[in-house]
Nucleic acid binder design. Structure first.
Lengths: 232, 232
DNA sequence: GCATGCAAAATTGCATACAAGATAGCCAGA
DNA sequence: TCTGGCTATCTTGTATGCAATTTTGCATGC
């Protein structure tokens, strides 16, 4: 006999409909498929996902608690439209958090992660030379993730990753701009040197400058159209 | 005619049962009245608050999204019991956030807030001399809040206040310890001097040291009994 | 005495029904 | 024609009932 289970038993706990809905909606929002200001109709979502309103409401409430959507009593929920000021503040927070990660990493990043960091940094150099914005952006995330891990503070790492995810739809990735890849790599290089040298404050300053530049804390980095799309 | 409304019209929007439940439960958890590890029974809460399970569930889902409670499918909701490691990490995050606030405040705190800061600082001096831990703790919060506002970054200020609130139940306030008030005030003094002098990095370092000491990032600052109470 | 398996109870997840508040459209009057 | 208010409709908030899963208790066998 075999009777191999038709459904592959995933390791995770049995997931509920509301959980899946929450993740699906979050993904659609963060990917930009559902833009800021769009109203999320409960019955509409229920129909679309083939469930009742109850799990939809629970998913929306969780998203509201994380700030991804805004819900006002009896007035429905809409995808959050951050003000330019709020966006600039988020970028500044991100810069400070990333900088803190770098500083802590400089103090206590384990040898294994240091080697990983150096390796990723080296591969980024190749991609920068090749001028490949797509792959550079992907590996760039891994670069930062390595430093988050290197902070030795999972809570801080999670917060940093979360803020970065949230501002993601509003960043304009400038990697396509001529020379931006090279400049980014040089900024990375300063961060890597400081971390490997065990110099926290230099690492912090270098990282803050790097992130602050990539997502400069000014209104003009808002992705054009994001707010227009939000306007009803 | 008068017909004065019997219910005072509060400025806020019409609140829903789930909202009130969420706030009430959050308050009970953060105040320590509902300790870590305590199971939150849906029907029990519904009976206690005189509502049905539906708003209770929505409140619990929101609390779960913020990390105050943990919900596993079909297994109920329990008040989050942070591990000693997670707690230490949170304290470290708090120190970094407070330090970032101080650094930004040193750069751009408006004159009005600077005067407020100086005034609060002066009153704290009086309370420290008088050796009044209660009032000192209260005004100490105002001291920090002034700096949060002074950062000019409402997002950062909110994050910092939130982290502080969450670790609140696990801090052991050492203001009662002899000499602690004086030492705290001296640390404050270094922060205030750096902010008023417009020296961001000195302010950052001073604040990090201050917060790091008040809630020292080591396991022994966990309030004794918090985990014992959690043990079922 | 202890482990194992089954059944019943309890609890959570979801769907449906109803209530309350908000929005929109219409009609009356100026 | 425009304005004000009223009603109809729609959406959300809450309650209730049922389904699904977990847990508990007991009986049975070793």
């Amino acid at each position: 006999m075999d009777a191999a289970p038709r459904k592959i038993a995933l390791p995770g706990p049995p997931r509920t409909r509301a959980d899946r809905l929450r993740e699906d909606l979050a993904e659609e929002i963060l990917s930009g498929r559902i833009g800021p200001g769009v109203r999320l109709d409960e019955q509409g979502l229920a129909d679309r996902f083939g469930v009742s309103r109850t799990p939809v409401r629970e998913a929306l409430r969780q998203l509201a608690a994380t700030g991804l959507v805004e819900a006002r009593p009896h007035k429905g929920v809409v995808v959050t439209t951050p003000s330019p000021v709020a966006l600039a503040e988020s970028f500044e927070v991100m810069a400070e958090l990333e900088a803190a990660c770098a500083a802590l990493a400089a103090r206590r990043m384990p040898a294994g992660l240091r080697r990983t960091l150096a390796r990723v940094h080296g591969r980024l150099r190749t991609l920068a030379d090749a001028g490949d914005p797509e792959d550079y952006a992907a590996l760039n995330l891994e670069f930062h993730d390595t430093i988050w891990q290197g902070s030795g503070n999972a809570t801080l790492a999670a917060m940093t990753a979360d803020v970065r995810r949230r501002v993601g739809p509003f960043r304009r990735l400038q990697f396509r701009l001529s020379g931006r890849l090279q400049k980014s790599w040089e900024e990375h290089d300063a961060v890597v040197r400081a971390i490997l040298a065990g110099d926290p404050e230099t690492a912090r300053a270098a990282m803050r400058g790097h992130v602050g530049l990539v997502g400069d804390a000014s209104a003009d980095l808002v992705r054009p159209g994001a707010f227009l799309a939000a306007a009803k």
